Simulated scan of single mutants.
Amino acid sequence: MIVAESTPRQKQSPQTAAQTQPAEAWRVVVLNDPVNRMSYVVMVLRRVFGFDEPRARQHMLQVHEQGRSIVWTGTREQAEAHLFSLHQWHLTAIIQADETS
């Protein structure tokens, strides 16, 4: 026996479905360049991201040895703001979509 529901089911609209999906994550990646001194890169990372000395130094060494370091991951708007700040300090940096999330 099939029992009819007293209230009809509401279908989720495409707009509501899009709003419930998690936002895509973006990475801020600092790239190696031959211009900036290591101590300068550490200072900039501390000021822009609020890193402590060991964490900023770890990212700087990763940039120096591997050519790049992912220093931040989050929303695209915030990633673009961080990218702008890094460019203001004359660091070479990019943002890219985080395919792992």
Rank of each mutant, 00 (worst) to 15 (best):
I95C: 07
A17Q: 09
D52H: 11
K11V: 09
R27T: 09
L86H: 00
K11I: 09
T100L: 03
V63R: 03
R57Y: 07
R46H: 00
M43N: 06
A23L: 12
L61G: 00
F51D: 00
E99V: 15
E80Q: 14
Q21A: 07
E80Y: 13
Y40Q: 03
F51V: 05
Q78H: 11
L45Q: 04
V35W: 09
P8Q: 15
A23M: 09
K11T: 07
L61H: 06
Q96Y: 05
S69H: 10
P14S: 05
F51A: 00
H59S: 01
A97H: 09
V35F: 12
P22A: 15
Q15H: 10
A97D: 07
A97M: 12
V30Q: 01
A81R: 05
P14K: 06
G67N: 03
T75L: 08
A97Q: 12
P8T: 15
G50W: 10
Q58L: 12
K11E: 07
P14I: 11
A23G: 06
R55F: 11
S85K: 05
M43H: 08
A18D: 04
I2C: 10
P14H: 07
Q21W: 13
L91A: 03
M60T: 08
P22Q: 15
G74D: 08
T75H: 09
E80R: 12
R55Q: 13
L83G: 01
Q58N: 08
F84E: 03
A81I: 13
E5P: 01
T73V: 15
Q62V: 13
I95T: 14
T20F: 06
P34L: 09
G50D: 06
F84D: 02
V35A: 13
